[in-house]
């Protein structure tokens, strides 16, 4: 197999594994993607989130050269997908509607892809084994379950041992063990220095797998960054505190300019760290029964950022 630079080290030093710059795509009067910019770094799993119709799949298809951007660019280390040498050895992709000729077997599909991509024949057996399809490799794909087809799509993406893995709703059809396996696979790929971009609307799934997230709605990027940062939102720090006298503590916090949501004896304090809340309580000589930083759930962050109920 052709040797490439070590994984995790982009071909052009200093460039992100994936760069999307001011990308726009219109279908007639509909702006599917609108001036979108973000980057994906090697060695990280990045979640690409958004409600249905937000523009996730169009963005990924523009990145993979399947749709022509109306403006802007989407590149891998500065090169368009169709400019890459042996692209399947650089980028592996699982698209939402991954399909196969029903009359051909998994092994046959992978052999065809191996020949097209100049990958050695033994990779076919390796990826079949990696996705757990070795025993069914000679069966025709039309007899496969949806989960088996999804595993075959993942095998096809891994065939060239790519440095960038793009997964569009990859858990569709996978059973719970399959989803756990997929999470492990993504973490392994990132640990090896590869860049993994996963698009999903299953927020809980993404929260357990990713390092970074990008949130898109109406074709526009609403937030991007490390998971914790986006989970916390842009409201600054927040703290959950349980107080012996919640009414007095609420007054003390509000006098110092903090917004407080009260639920019984539990207060959610916005704009203050636990240390600051503890300090205020101590200054007021108020007993605190519990104190913890508050993070918004991904669901809350998602709804707040997109304005859409997931």
């Amino acid at each position: 197999m052709k040797k490439f630079p070590p994984l995790g080290k982009p071909k052009r030093p200093g460039r992100a594994a994936v760069e999307i710059r001011d990308l726009s795509k219109r279908f007639g009067a509909v702006a599917a993607v609108n001036h979108l910019s973000f980057e994906i770094e090697p060695g990280r799993v990045t979640g690409f989130l958004g409600p249905n119709g937000a523009g996730k799949s169009t963005t990924l298809r523009a990145l993979l050269g399947l749709v022509q951007p109306s403006s802007g660019s989407a590149t891998f280390g500065g090169l368009r997908y169709d400019e890459l040498d042996e692209p399947s050895a650089r980028v592996g992709a699982v698209l939402e509607d991954a399909s196969f000729h029903p009359g051909r077997s998994a092994r046959n599909h992978l052999r065809v892809l191996a020949i097209t991509g100049n990958h050695p024949p033994h990779r076919v057996e390796e990826v079949l084994s990696a996705v757990g399809l070795s025993d069914a490799a000679d069966r025709r794909v039309k007899g496969y379950s949806m989960g088996m087809r999804q595993r075959l799509a993942i095998a096809a993406a891994l065939l060239g041992d790519p440095q960038v893995l793009i997964l569009d709703e990859p858990s569709n059809g996978l059973d719970p063990p399959g989803i756990i396996w997929l999470r492990g696979l993504m973490r392994e790929q990132a640990a090896d220095g590869r860049a993994v971009l996963i698009s999903s609307h299953v927020l809980a799934e993404v929260a357990q797998s990713v390092d970074d997230v990008g949130v898109i709605a109406d074709g526009e990027l609403r937030a991007q960054g490390p998971l914790e940062q986006v989970l916390g939102g842009s409201d600054g720090p927040a703290t959950t505190v349980r107080a012996q006298d919640p009414v007095r503590l609420t007054g003390a916090l509000e006098r110092r300019g903090h917004r407080v949501d009260r639920d019984g004896d539990v207060l959610n304090v916005f704009g203050a760290t636990p240390e600051e809340v503890g300090e205020i309580a101590g200054h007021e000589r108020l007993a605190v029964l519990g104190l913890a930083p508050r993070t918004r759930s991904l669901e809350e962050a998602f709804i707040a950022l997109t304005g859409v109920q997931s």
Binding site: L64, G65, L66, L84, P87, A93, L95, A98, L113, G117
Partner: peptide
Amino acid sequence: TGSVLAAPN
């Protein structure tokens, strides 16, 4: 789609 991904030209 898969064919074009494998052979972008």
